[in-house]
Each structure stands twice: as C-alpha cells, then as structure tokens.
Design a protein around this nucleic acid. Structure first.
Lengths: 115, 115
DNA sequence: GTCAAACTACGATGGTTCTCGTACAATGGA
DNA sequence: TCCATTGTACGAGAACCATCGTAGTTTGAC
C-alpha cells in the first residue's frame, strides 16, 4: 500500500540542528567509531549487514540510530537493505576540518595500538 | 607530615594512555566543553573557582576529574587552589590538529546559536 | 591556635545507555 | 504464494553518568 512507504522514511536532523556535543558523543563509542571509519574507507554507501560488528543485530540497530540522530550518517532504505552514508558535506560546512582530523586521529591511534 | 603531600598528587594518564574515544566523551558534555573553551581562551592556568559554572561545587569536582582522567587537562595543587591547564602538547602529539578543530567548531557553533 | 577558603569524599537519586533476546514487519525473488 | 533476507520494536537488565547535599580535609593567613 502507499502509506507503507511513509513508515520507511527515516528522521534525520537538518544540518542546522546538528550539535557538536552530540556528534562527539556519537563518536565516543568504539563500535560507532568503527562503523564511521569503515564508512569513510568505503567512500560510498554500505548496508548495515556489510559490517561485521561484535554485537547483536538489535544493538547494531541501536548504534546506527544514534549515528543517524546525531547527524553523522544518513540512512535510506533500498529494498530490504538500509544504506548508510556519511554526511560529510553537512559536517564540513558546520565544523570545517573537524571530521577529517577525527578520522586521522582514529587512524593514528589504531596504528599505534594495533587496532 | 611528609606523606600528606602524596595525597595531594593527582593521577594523570601518561600521553600514550590517552584514548581518542575517552577524549571525545569528555568533550561531549556541555559543562566540560565550556571549561575547556575557557581554559583555551585563558592561555594559562585557572583554578577551579575561576569558573562560573551552572552546577554545584561537587558536580564541578566531578567534571574536572573526568577531564583530568581523560587526559584533556592537567591539574596541580597550588596552596588551597587546584590549578588547571590544557595538555595541548600531549594532545597535539597524539592527534595532530584535532584539538584546534574542536575548539574552532565549538566557537562556530557558539556564534551560530548564540552561546 | 583559629578560621575562612578551596576542594574532596561519600552516598543517593534519577536519567541515560549499552546490551541482549524474542517476536515482528517489509521487501524481493522463486 | 511462500520464503529467505534485512532490519525493527519492545521489554528488560546492568552499567554508567550527571547531579546534588552534607560532612570532611587541606592549606594559608591572621
């Protein structure tokens, strides 16, 4: 039916609604940081099941929702899959250079600690 | 007595022990972000009571401890006062450019939202 | 020695978060 | 239509966190 599609549209914060503290909090969880780094490395969209995370499916859903509601990622349904992409343009506009530095820092720390 | 001084020495993580996720978490609280911004603006050390925070003294103690244990600030006693300073060198060495971008992002958001 | 100032320790409370399991819904293909 | 795939909703538990009040410690000045 036609109303079914409305249920499949996901709430995202507008660019101006994205808050720095919320973004930092979203990135302060190791599982979510890992998701973000994989998304950045993929340079495109990935479905939730493309990730091999050390948590169950429902916990995965939770983490993706936190990332979406913080404004870090954009999620859209594509068939049964849900595709995820970083909101790089929005973040770059709001917080110039920040996201790249965070990714770089995560990479350096990963190299240092063997992550 | 001489052992009394040991009680006044505060535990700090060594540079190599500082974790990105922990730093981001420390900065994801509005009160702590405010402290960090004031410290950055002061360009020197400030005592805990130099801050006019919207929380009680015991909550203030809590926030300063989180910042210290995350590696963002260094705290040292000076008489009855406890002086606070940013660990800019350590952070810059670990995560080049990150801290400046975060401060810049906080400034931009403050200007945008009137904070 | 006395006292005020600065900060801490402790316990409590209310809220949030991370995690899971189970049951369910939507989609696309056979 | 039936089914496998993909992800959600809901409830629950454990842990964590921000906040407070009260009582206490440490220091320096008088």
């Amino acid at each position: 039916m036609s109303t079914a599609t409305s249920k499949r549209e996901l709430d995202h914060p507008a660019r101006e609604e994205i808050r720095l503290e919320t973004v930092l909090h979203a990135l302060s969880d190791p599982v979510r940081m890992r998701v973000v780094r994989e998304l950045a490395a993929a340079e495109g969209e990935l479905s939730c099941s493309d990730f091999d995370l050390p948590v169950t499916k429902s916990t995965t859903t939770h983490h993706f929702r936190v990332l979406r509601e913080s404004g870090v990622i954009r999620q859209v349904y594509r068939g049964t899959a849900k595709m995820n992409g970083l909101r790089r343009t929005d973040l770059e506009e709001l917080f110039p250079g920040l996201f790249d530095r965070i990714l770089e820092a995560a990479g350096l720390q990963g190299a240092r600690l063997g992550g």
